[in-house]
Computed example of a mutant assay.
Amino acid sequence: MSTPAGESAGNGRRIITVTPNPAVDLTYHVDGIIPGGSHRVNTPLSRAGGKGLNVARVAHQLGSTVLAIAPAGGSSGAAFAAELAASGIPHRLIPVRSETRRSIALVDDVSGHTSIFNESGLPLEPAEWQALAAAVVESLSGDDGHLAGVLVGSGSLPAGAPQDFYSALVKLAHDAGVPAIIDTSGPGIIAAARAGADLLKPNNHELTEAMGQQDLAGAALQLIGLGARRVLVSTGADGMMAFDAAEPDRYWHARLPEPLNGNPTGAGDAAVSAAAVELANGVIDTEQILRAATAWSAAAVLMPGAGEISPRYSELADQLIVSYKELP
């Protein structure tokens, strides 16, 4: 009998997340947005964010051992570092010269829609990229007494980033004998597939854009054909699809009976966090990973900001409708 992701039956191996383009996340809640109008808002929720930070935050919330690695710089980077220190999440920040970017989420509590405004990340210097890579290698070594269970690389890349950044992360993980999860878009997801990533987690828009076709199953199978071992595809209110290289003739689909209302900003990151916990605990069953990822993703929608999930995740997991679909 399997133990739900997030409960204390794991092997204690550490989830390492790498966020090359972090942000100070600001979340505003607004009682209705009028285009061109003036709106009075309360003080925003401010957090150290970026996709990998959100992954680590969720896993840490549910008791997993984590280490979040990211660059941080400037006055915004100081605010980023202060919030992260206050959160209690184990982390390692690489000092950089560039200002850490900001991301703003406007949650319309009337319509239920969320609008996101992401600043572009500023370039890092070559020595700073080298320091980031060195921190990853050191964290995977286990020299600090923490055995690595999975390496997660998440998010966009700042301008001028090495094109092989995510494929290099996959290689570092495999050299250390641990699985690699990559959640990114564009050429980075293709490179990670070619490197043999153990799990890729695009959303439907990222997948079709990267692969140049609208058929989600066909696009996911292209990533499998390039070398990815598993692909999870989030499709918003329609749930999530899972593809496994070991069973190329079918895929799984999981969804709730009814969509949830809330803030979907960190839903994809919560899904990655669930997958990371499962892989770190030695789970290789794709359906089990899909169930955990879908439930955690849904539970994130019920929370006000990215990087946390509702305690209802177990209840939501029990409500999932999971189907198996044969591929032509």
Rank of each mutant, 00 (worst) to 15 (best):
M1R: 10
S2C: 05
T3D: 05
A5I: 08
A9R: 12
G12L: 04
I15F: 11
I16Y: 11
N21Y: 10
A23Y: 01
V30N: 11
G32S: 12
I34P: 00
G37I: 01
R40E: 14
N42C: 09
T43S: 15
P44N: 12
S46T: 14
S46P: 01
R47T: 11
R47F: 02
A48R: 02
G50L: 07
G50V: 10
N54Y: 06
R57V: 04
R57Q: 00
S64W: 12
V66G: 01
A70D: 00
A72V: 03
G73D: 02
S75V: 14
G77E: 10
A78I: 07
A78Q: 14
A79P: 00
L84Q: 13
S87V: 09
G88Q: 11
R97V: 13
S98I: 05
S98N: 06
S98K: 05
E99I: 13
R102W: 00
S103Y: 07
I104G: 00
A105T: 04
L106G: 00
D108S: 05
D109T: 14
V110N: 13
V110L: 15
H113V: 10
S115N: 13
F117T: 04
G121D: 05
G121E: 00
P123G: 02
P126R: 13
A127V: 11
Q130L: 14
A131N: 07
A131G: 08
A133W: 11
E138V: 06
S139Q: 10
G142I: 02
G145I: 05
H146L: 12
L147Y: 08
A148N: 10
G149K: 04
G149C: 11
S154K: 00
G155A: 03
S156N: 10
L157E: 07
A159Q: 15
S167N: 03
L169I: 01
K171F: 09
A176R: 12
A180K: 02
I181K: 02
I182P: 00
T184W: 02
T184C: 13
I189T: 09
I189C: 05
A191W: 09
A192R: 08
A193W: 12
A195P: 09
G196I: 07
K201H: 11
K201E: 01
N204F: 08
H205K: 11
L207Q: 05
E209W: 01
A210H: 12
Q214G: 10
Q214E: 14
A217R: 01
Q222K: 12
G225P: 07
V231M: 02
L232Q: 06
G236T: 03
A237E: 06
G239D: 07
A242D: 00
A245V: 07
D249T: 15
A254K: 03
L256W: 12
P257N: 08
E258M: 08
P259W: 00
L260Y: 09
L260F: 04
G262H: 14
P264L: 08
A267T: 08
G268N: 01
N281D: 15
V283W: 05
T286V: 14
I289V: 15
I289K: 03
L290S: 03
R291G: 13
A292T: 04
A298F: 12
V301W: 11
G305L: 05
A306D: 01
E308T: 08
E308C: 10
S310F: 11
S314P: 08
L320D: 03
Y324K: 10
